[in-house]
């Protein structure tokens, strides 16, 4: 089957850096919000930066909040994308798509918010991290998903929390694989091999 990777474009934030990362891997991603195109894709990447409340509004306006949870192919949510796949988030008291069984909450008692920089991810247990042990990835966020039964990678900033989540064909990463150097590219490569 021909591989067509789709990057969900719902009119918010920086989707270009994900597209560039796919180009570097010798793949390519189609930026679209078209339902049919998304349904027919071999892999779906759901990026996101910005404010959760606004992002979810944009998503809902295109009815993508009902489309995405029903997809059958591998789906990868990145950063805010991952957070919107959770039950809900404290940011703007926003409801998510409820794919992951966890509520996103704000950092407390940490020296700096947002949490910006490279952090080690551990306890990697998913084909997403095939061939990897513990690697550094790049994070920028103020809200996080606590540990849950769906956690497939953890990291530590004030508390230990989910760096990545998985439920069936749905994957979510809090960090930015597209900006996490070689290891980030390997994670994207692993996703595309699913």
């Amino acid at each position: 089957m021909r591989q067509e990777v789709v990057i969900v474009d719902y009119g918010l934030g920086n989707v270009q850096s994900v597209s560039f990362a796919l180009d570097r891997l010798g793949s390519s991603g189609v930026l679209t919000s078209d339902h049919k195109r998304i349904q027919q894709a071999s892999h779906v990447i759901f990026p996101g930066v910005g404010h959760a409340e606004m992002a979810f509004k944009y998503l809902a306006r295109l009815d993508l909040d009902t489309l995405l949870p029903n997809l059958k192919q591998p789906v990868l949510g990145i950063c805010l994308g991952m957070q919107l796949m959770c039950q809900k988030t404290e940011e703007g008291d926003t409801s998510g798509m409820g794919i992951f069984n966890v509520d996103v909450i704000k950092f407390h008692e940490v020296p700096k918010i947002p949490c910006v920089g490279w952090n080690k991810i551990d306890e990697l247990k998913s084909p997403l991290f095939k061939g990897m042990n513990s690697v550094y990835t790049y994070f920028v966020h103020s809200y996080f998903a606590p540990l849950s039964t769906q956690t497939i990678a953890s990291t530590h900033y004030g508390t230990t929390y989910s760096a990545a989540l998985q439920k069936d064909n749905f994957f979510g990463v809090q960090f930015h694989p597209e900006r996490s150097g070689k290891d980030g590219e390997q994670i994207l490569k692993n996703f595309l091999a699913l």
């Binding site: 270009q16 560039f20 990362a21 790049y138 597209e178």
Partner: peptide
């Protein structure tokens, strides 16, 4: 530059 970089820009 953004196309070539794999770190934050």
């Amino acid at each position: 530059v953004a196309k070539k970089l794999s770190i934050p820009f």
